[in-house]
Nucleic acid binder design. Structure first.
Lengths: 114, 114
DNA sequence: ACGATATTTCTAGAATTATCGAAATAAAAT
DNA sequence: ATTTTATTTCGATAATTCTAGAAATATCGT
């Protein structure tokens, strides 16, 4: 089955921004949790309980993911639901595939045996 | 045409490392130059001339890319040839696609019209 | 209005990173 | 041997980022 999806525009600058933000192990963990959670997202407190990091630290990291456009937040009462922003990660993957992959993967120095 | 390629193993920790290193605009630019250059690679001095950054700064960034396993260097006389390490970027893209993409790209908040 | 809950903002110290000139190293050319 | 070319390592400074406690804000339930 095929599906038409909108991939948000990506360029080198935006890509670097996304890559840098995802480059923090903590933020990558947060982001992966949100991906698994799907469009319904996760409440900040749930993320905190799962990753066991102080609220202020987590808030900082979520803010950065949001700043990079990777995550969005919507308020639901006193809870803040976080979810990934559709299309951005897809765009990043498309960008990396087109601009940063060689297609020469088998010229790798690391052998499958190793 | 299909081609069998070896994709080096990837995990969250390694992915974060690669993402962080590629997250620097300068390093992303270096890496893209090397991708375009292909398996033959580029001499450090050539990269320096193209990007116009001081040698010591460039050396630092290349060292980080190498540390993350994204780039390798081989000596050719007094020149150092840099090239991307095959399979790593491919592995990163595979990882991101499998672990960080939702498949819900069209739930994007940003409309194509905008 | 008050207390409880959810989350952010403020603040600051510690750690990391970026930048680049100067000195050091390595290999080639003379 | 000395000089020239190519690149790295060193060292110092500036800037950024991480971390987390304390205080502030916002919302809900009573």
């Amino acid at each position: 089955m095929w599906k038409a999806v909108y991939i948000s525009p990506m360029n080198e600058e935006k890509a670097a921004k996304c890559l840098a933000e995802l480059g923090s192990p903590t933020r990558l963990a947060v982001f992966r949790l949100l991906v698994k959670a799907g469009p319904e997202g996760l409440v900040v407190g749930d993320i905190q309980r799962r990753l066991k990091i102080p609220a202020s630290t987590l808030s900082h990291h979520i803010a950065r993911l949001a700043w990079a456009g990777l995550v969005e937040q919507r308020r639901d009462g006193r809870k803040l639901v976080c979810s990934t922003r559709g299309g951005v990660m897809d765009a990043l993957v498309v960008f990396l595939t087109a601009e940063c992959c060689t297609g020469f993967a088998d010229e790798c120095t690391e052998t499958p045996a190793a």
